[in-house]
Design a binder for these strands. Sequence first.
DNA 1: CGATAGATTGAGAGTTTTCAACCGATGTGG
DNA 2: CCACATCGGTTGAAAACTCTCAATCTATCG
Lengths: 205, 205
Amino acid sequence: MIYSQIEDILNGFPTKNFKRGEVIYSEGEAPESVYFINFGLVGLFYIAQSGKETFLRIFDDKSIFGHRSYFAEENYHGSSIALKETQIIIVPKKECDAICEQHPQLLKLLLKQVSKDLASAELRISQLQDKSSEQRIAESLWFLKLRSPNQTWTRKEVGEYSGSSHESVARFLTKAENLGILKKEGRDIEILDEDRLLNFENVKK
Amino acid sequence: MIYSQIEDILNGFPTKNFKRGEVIYSEGEAPESVYFINFGLVGLFYIAQSGKETFLRIFDDKSIFGHRSYFAEENYHGSSIALKETQIIIVPKKECDAICEQHPQLLKLLLKQVSKDLASAELRISQLQDKSSEQRIAESLWFLKLRSPNQTWTRKEVGEYSGSSHESVARFLTKAENLGILKKEGRDIEILDEDRLLNFENVKK
DNA sequence: CGATAGATTGAGAGTTTTCAACCGATGTGG
DNA sequence: CCACATCGGTTGAAAACTCTCAATCTATCG
């Protein structure tokens, strides 16, 4: 089974639109549905007790989200928020059960997706201890730009993805621009030298 | 489907024993099998470029492991190492495919497991930024002791699980013992006051 | 009993955050 | 259309946290 088939299955389901900043579901809620993105961009965030936010995952066009909580049978562990104009198909639990029943291959596809996400998350745990803040910021910039090249990511979002403060991101951008690695364009950035960006630690000097 | 049924399915498969410290599989290898623990304890570790190790996951009696890479169709992203005398059933890929085919409920069980692990990993990402090293050590001690009460966890292992140095763990243990929160018993520890351990930040003074 | 791995403790170093002030752009309501 | 509020960005300086390094000690095992 491939992802485009999911679109066919869900064809005709009602859609809902969200503007940037609108919350699709909130941490702690019980999952009542699974979501499919027709177009747009959604971020999954966790807000810790101290108020510190972590940017956990990105979902873009033709992605499923909300399925982790659904299959784990847990409440949402984070909140999903539209990062730009986004159209979503909301698939209620009951329909979702039925679709999974009819398409056993779908379970395998989702298991593959979640398994990959687990590896990514665990590698991030390691990098938080292993890599410098600047290296993590460099890699996060590259990753976020790759995932959504036309998105103007804020310093705050990059910080929450990389595990650093938005001030550290600003400082890094200034430094990297002076080195000719990237170019600030208003609030957006353009990466000029991907190799030097990703090998920033060796370039620093 | 419940976990004990898996044992029945695998009944009769050949077993293999590992001593503490023995490697079951190594990072980077292609998954050729999935593993089931008859008895024992296994840790999944990732060693970063710098040599820093991260303790990612624990598997104990009657657990499946190695399945993440198998379903993600990726090479192992970490190495699994026996933490004490452990007996494992090695289920080759082919058999595993067949079993999944015959027991579609197994896929759902594994999807549930991996989904829960993903939430745990993502919460750990958040805590690395949100909580102090001492709080993380306290929670890791509690978690590891809960998962395997009779295991004598080394400071190094606790450090690699909590994301701190083994020296920080040793300092924490001394401090917590002086406060009567736990008791060092040779290399092992006994938790005396779980509540104060888990609310260490408020107790500190 | 000696060798080795694990544990402890102190001191110093370095990284990154926090706090604060300020700037600039954007957007809204009067 | 302007004034003002707000959000995002930048930069500096100080503070805090945790690690690293090093020396020493202790337990465990062959």
